Each structure stands twice: as structure tokens, then as C-alpha cells.
Amino acid sequence: MRTDRPARWRTEAVSLSTAGLHDAWPVLGHEERLCRIGEPIDRALVLGSSTASHAFDLERARRDGLTVVRRGSGGGAVLVEPGSQIWLMLYLRLDDPLVPWDLGASFLWLGAVVAGVLRGLGLRAEVVEERQPRTDLGRLICFGDLGFGEVTVEGAKVLGLAQRRSRGQACFQLSLLWWEHQGALRDLLVGDQMLDQPLRVAGLSPLVSVSRQNLQDQLVRAITTL
């Protein structure tokens, strides 16, 4: 049964391998929400649930020091590196008011919070509120397409979102780019796939006057006051 009672946020920072952060599924207490700040200890090529692994040179990725991870959410691949993104995983019960049944609409509140924080720092941040056409590049690389709730600054994608629902809970995965490192995924594509398609993506570090830690603190505070 869905409830309108406010849940209590709990916040924690967890340092694990990229695979460990994706595989974790903490059990929530009654009327509890969890905001987990993920600090990866490795570099990883993360393939989405529907990413074609044969499209990437996985041996080269491993030679380059990347762990290859398959996650149970999202579509395209993401590059994870320590310090290069702000990575939050928000765990909520399915009867939480912040988890609409409509999967697309369920991202909109989160995108609005992120955009609000970025606008407070003087950036022209926009939230994707309508379904966007899929591209061949976006099917392979997460930051190649725009989805519901994701955020752009001056037309470049800075926020990627994904979601899993299982065992009566939802997990919203948020990756806000501090450095633009997703373009390196092109070098791992097999052959010359989609090299002529633009990848409009940006990191926030050169655009804001605050530190990564300060931005992360602002974002966590904005989310956990809901």
C-alpha cells in the first residue's frame, strides 16, 4: 500500500569496488530512505543491462587497467573512475511517494533537484522532461543519449540516471560528472562504430567555483531534505 507519510533519510559513504557498489542491495528499515555516496576504489567499464559486450574491446579495457562490470540497470556503458564523478545510490521503498509507478516520471523529481543545485551555482541547467529519440551511439554509451530526468548544461549532458526495482525497493543511481571522461569510451568501441556521431557531454569541474566535495554536500543536502 502506498503511503504519503514522510520517510527518514539515512546517509552513508561507502568505498568499494565498482562491482561491489552495483551489487549491494541494503534492506531498508520501516519508513526509511538511504542515500549512499559511492566511492569506487577501481577504474571500471560498466556495461548496462542491455549493452552489447561484443561492441567493446574488453581485452583492451582490461589492459588499460579497467575492470569490466555488468550492472542490472540502464542501457549504455559508463566509465567509472575514482574522483571523476559524484555517484549517489538512493534506496527507497516502492510505496514511497518519491517512487511513481511510471518509470520515466519517477526520474523527474531527482533531475529537478540536481538542476536546482547547479542553477544555484550559476549554470544554465535543463532537465529532460520528454522522451528523446534513441541513437545508435546512445544504445552503446549511456552519455550518448538523454533520458527522463537527466540534466544538461548548455546542451551537454552532465547527469546520467538509472534505476532498479526489486524486493519491494527501488534504487536510483545518479552519476554527475565532475570530469569529462566518458569520451574515452569511444576508444574502446570495436571498429569505427558511430565515430561520426557527436557525444555532447561535459564535466562540471571547469564550470563551477566550488570543490567536488562541496558540490556533493550540496546535492546530498538538497535530496535528503525532501
Rank of each mutant, 00 (worst) to 15 (best):
W109N: 06
I86S: 00
S175M: 11
E12Y: 00
D217A: 11
V220N: 02
V201Q: 02
A112D: 13
V127K: 06
A61Y: 08
K157S: 01
L189T: 01
Q173H: 13
G48E: 00
V153Y: 08
D95I: 05
G72P: 07
W9A: 11
P6W: 11
H22G: 02
A44P: 04
R164H: 06
E81K: 03
T135Y: 08
G83L: 06
S211W: 10
G104Q: 13
L174P: 00
G116E: 12
L161H: 00
G122A: 12
G104W: 02
F143G: 02
E130T: 15
G191E: 00
E150H: 09
P82D: 03
Q173W: 00
W178Y: 10
I141K: 03
C142S: 13
S209M: 14
L137F: 05
P133N: 13
G155K: 10
C35M: 14
A19I: 05
R62H: 06
D145I: 04
S15E: 15
L140C: 12
T152M: 08
Q173S: 11
L58T: 05
C35K: 04
S209Y: 09
L121Y: 08
D4G: 12
V158H: 01
V14F: 04
W179F: 12
G48K: 02
V220I: 09
G20D: 01
T51A: 15
R124I: 15
H22E: 07
G104A: 13
R200T: 07
W25A: 06
W178K: 00
L140I: 11
G203C: 12
W25T: 06
D64H: 10
I41N: 09
H181Q: 07
R70D: 00
L47F: 10
W178N: 04
G168T: 03
R131W: 11
Q216A: 09
W101L: 09
L195E: 09
A125V: 11
D95N: 13
R70T: 11
S49W: 12
A170W: 06
L207N: 09
Q173V: 04
Q169W: 07
V151A: 04
G183K: 13
Q169P: 09
V208C: 14
I86K: 01
L199R: 06
V114E: 02
R36H: 00
A19V: 05
V27L: 15
L176Q: 04
F56N: 02
W179R: 12
L195I: 01
A19R: 13
G111C: 03
A156D: 10
W87L: 07
E32F: 12
R2F: 11
